[in-house]
Amino acid sequence: MSQQPGGPGGAQEPSARVPRERAYELLAHLVASAEICVTEPHYYGSFRLLDAAAKLAAALLECGLEDPWLASLQAELDRNKVLMMSDRPAFYSYLPQASRQVAQRLLETAGDVAP
């Protein structure tokens, strides 16, 4: 799991190399979530995916990816995912907000793509 060099404008993309064991941890989380989501309440599916996204971000950052935006997103994901258990309306409100943040970041890093 590593990014290829060569981003917009020819700049070197930041990259990280995730060891197999760490990648397998993420894999196990996703596959196990797929199994238990069949019997858990439907909103747990969103929770598990946010949790997985936070774990992915943590793994990349721990493995040396220098990305302050991702670090900020990871903290925000970890803070907001638990709203599922304490404040479900706030949790639902956060979901599109997170998507917009990621979409904005995609635009910013995609180079010359008009929204």
């Binding site: 196990a32 238990i36 598990r48």
Partner: peptide, 14 residues
């Protein structure tokens, strides 16, 4: 056993 606990935790999203 820490290794077995880790493996179980890996497969336990909760």
């Amino acid at each position: 056993d820490r290794r077995r606990i880790k493996l179980v935790a890996d497969l336990s999203p909760g």
